[in-house]
Computed example of a mutant assay.
Amino acid sequence: MTTTASGAAAPRPVKLSCHNLWKVFGNNAAQFLASHGGKATAADLERAHLVGAVRNASIEVHEGETFIIMGLSGSGKSTLVRCLSRLIEPTAGALALDGQDLLKATPDELIEIRRHKMGMVFQNFALLPHLSVLENVAFPLLVQGVERKAREERAMQMIELVSLKGRELRFPAELSGGQQQRVGIARSLAVEPEIWFLDEPFSALDPLIRREMQAELIRLQSVLKKTIIFITHDFDEAIRLADRIAIMKDGEIIQIGKPEDVVSNPATDYVAKFTSDVNRARVLSAGGIMLPPSSGAHAYRRVKASAKIESFAPDIVDSLTPFAVEDAEGLVIGEVTPRAVIEVLAGKGRGAGA
């Protein structure tokens, strides 16, 4: 990551953005929105017998970021992602990839963008049953017209990347669910996409396999550093994977932020309820609950500001003494008390007032 003249981390460039994006289903939806100045309410839509699947959505996803869109079934998250890739045509708004207006792209241009810049993984693995693992992974390259030797070499690289080496000649029916999903991931990566869309890719998997696949995604992202837009309805999955989270309800984005910010400062009662069962010790960090440093803070045991509470909770509760909180450079910037940690463990808020 580049830095500014002051030494602070420079913001990463925006990879994909949408502003005031709408997807309304029904007759004359575009004309209806235009007549309301792009500000139709849910009641307006209902009276017109229209369905606002995505309503006035605005996001900016930065290069190399894992951006998670979440909400309950029917919240609009899958429709939004399909609008972002123009698999579904937005009714109104602005949409750009690397500054290019995607809404002005021709069908042929969109095909090329999807073939070369976008990778997609869905809940349904959609593997071709009559093709081997190698042939499935190489299939997008075949569509691109890549010659056989080159596409098979690339496919083998991806098969090794997702830890399926030795299974490249097997057929989908001979693989477990987790292995099939790895094939889907390898296939989507074969074209070296710049942006990676994953629509609830692990939700059909058993809990143990699902957690393994989450760990695999974290590992892959540490190597590949892709721009990822990931859909889920599982907040535990979101906090494990996300750099930032967008929460949707009834087609609207109601809060965007880092997992810790969303849990600590819910924008609405809905978000508070949505996050109420989250293991806060897994989300909140030492920096999020620290107090100003006392005169003796430098003598305390130290933890990084970014350290999650669950990582040091047993030690600080046993010690009965505060821990110093240090920044990335090792400077003490605060202290966290056992009581503050206990309050978080007990679900009594951030614990910062202890």
Rank of each mutant, 00 (worst) to 15 (best):
M1R: 11
T2N: 14
T4F: 10
A5D: 15
P13T: 11
V14N: 08
L16S: 02
C18A: 01
N20G: 09
V24Y: 06
F25W: 13
A29I: 05
Q31T: 08
A34P: 11
H36G: 10
T41S: 11
A42N: 15
A42D: 15
A43L: 11
L45N: 00
A53F: 03
N56I: 08
I59R: 06
I59K: 06
G64D: 04
G74F: 00
K77C: 03
L84T: 10
L84K: 11
L87T: 09
I88V: 15
I88C: 10
E89W: 11
L95P: 00
D98M: 04
G99Q: 12
G99S: 09
E109W: 14
L110M: 14
I111E: 14
E112H: 13
V121Y: 00
L128M: 15
L128R: 13
H130M: 05
S132Y: 15
E135F: 00
F139N: 02
R151V: 01
Q157Y: 05
M158S: 04
E160A: 12
E160G: 04
E160I: 07
E160W: 09
K165W: 08
K165V: 09
R167L: 09
F171S: 00
G178M: 07
Q181T: 08
L189Q: 06
V191P: 13
W196V: 02
D199C: 04
E200V: 10
P201W: 00
D206F: 11
L208N: 15
L208F: 14
E212K: 15
M213V: 05
L217F: 07
I218S: 13
L220H: 13
K225E: 12
F230C: 02
E237N: 02
L241I: 02
I245P: 03
I247G: 02
E252K: 14
I253F: 13
I256Y: 08
G257T: 03
K258M: 12
E260Q: 15
E260N: 12
E260P: 15
D261Y: 12
S264G: 03
A267H: 14
V271S: 00
F274C: 00
D277A: 01
V283W: 04
A286N: 07
S295D: 12
H298M: 12
A299I: 12
Y300I: 06
A305E: 15
S306P: 14
K308Q: 10
I309L: 10
S311F: 06
A313D: 01
V317S: 07
V317N: 08
P322S: 11
F323Y: 12
V325W: 03
V325N: 07
E326S: 06
A328H: 10
E329Y: 06
P338A: 06
I342G: 07
A346E: 12
K348T: 13
G351E: 09
A352E: 12
